[in-house]
Design a protein around this nucleic acid. Structure first.
Lengths: 206, 206
DNA sequence: ATTTTAATTAGTACGCGTTCTATAATAATA
DNA sequence: TATTATTATAGAACGCGTACTAATTAAAAT
């Protein structure tokens, strides 16, 4: 494999550097003016490159918006950890984590839309939620908490997955279906959780 | 209250007629070429009016897309009813309805996005899922099925709401978070349902 | 027929995501 | 230095949702 002539491809680090520069700027705009203010043209202008250059490094806008997810997820995770600090009873820890998770998305509808509803109806191609190490950890947390409460190893993952999707579903419904008189989010969340770990009684906690 | 001079506002029926003409055309385009093909400019052209006229009758594109929901929901409801025809055991009826509901959205991601994820990240205003009589009926169905299984009246609504949002959450997660190794949709759905109506054993059904 | 009010229209405009094309800059090999 | 492959760039273009304005039309009361 002799090296071909011509300019070599950019180094891995250069690519990453450029990507993070874009992502960083997108984050800055988002924090200052919200998601709506993040546009390709503006992003290019503020970062000092041509709009088309961005398309050489990202597939499109969605591909950039994903880099904001980490920020949101960390924010959410921080809230949960904060509330968990002084709690020791496993079942109580789980309940508070679950409640805080749902509350976060209900209280921050725009964040919820960014992370979980960032699909364009126009485009019918596969949605591309990027599940990296860090994102996975946020999900794993519930699995861990649940693992402490449920003793048997076998069904923890199924229970955890059901719990997570159930929580997201509650947030989605309250966020998007406002005309329907939903049962209180806390009550639904408690019911979901209680039913997933049936032996534990949560009535005594809340 | 003397009548004022000048052209009177359009009659209620005229307004409805125009709205349904637009909605009908939108449905035709959607069925022929998918959601992406439905645009304001094209809609206006095909219906024979100026693009801006539509804005006098609808708030915007989302307001039109909503009229496609009924079509999708009826389709989904039809599938459920079809599978329910020969089933008599209440618990089994409920389970099949729930499974079919989730399956429908998992099998038709574009429909799911249209109905439950039609919010633009750009716009931060409230989402506006229209819950009319017909749409409500689709939700009510689960409440009814659940009511037959659970005897006590008090908590049926809470259970039903939790079940519905849980089901939608499962569909959302499988649709949008493809990188995560979700437990099988059927299993999660069964677990969700079984845990909401704890005394019933579903292991014998599937 | 004239006036008055509502509805519709054409036209223009903005910014958007995205695609295309042609041109320039870059950095290696020959 | 000349060649060559890889980026980066500018610029135009497409169709989109949406907003605005000015002109026009429609239908009632006077």
């Amino acid at each position: 494999m002799a090296k071909t002539a011509g300019r070599p491809p950019r180094s891995e680090s250069d690519i990453l550097e450029f990507r993070s520069k874009i992502a960083k700027q997108a984050l800055a705009i988002y924090r200052a003016e919200g998601f709506g203010a993040v546009s390709m043209r503006r992003l290019a202008k503020e970062v000092g490159c041509a709009p088309m250059t961005i398309y050489a490094h990202f597939e499109g806008k969605q591909d950039i918006l994903r880099y904001l997810w980490a920020d949101v997820l960390t924010d959410m995770s921080g809230e949960i950890q904060g509330k968990l600090e002084r709690i020791n009873v496993p079942a109580e820890r789980l309940q508070i984590a679950v409640q805080t998770f749902v509350s976060y998305w209900v209280d921050h509808p725009d964040h919820f839309r960014l992370v979980f509803m960032s699909n364009d109806v126009t485009r019918s191609d596969v949605s591309t939620f990027v599940m990296d190490e860090e994102t996975l950890a946020h999900f794993q947390m519930f699995s861990d908490l649940l693992h402490v409460v449920l003793q048997d190893d076998r069904n923890v993952k199924a229970s955890s997955d059901t719990l997570i999707s159930g929580m997201i579903g509650i947030a989605l419904c309250i966020n998007t279906i406002r005309d329907y008189p939903w049962t209180d989010a806390r009550m639904m969340t408690d019911r979901l959780l209680a039913s997933i770990i049936s032996p534990v009684d949560f009535a005594s906690l809340s």
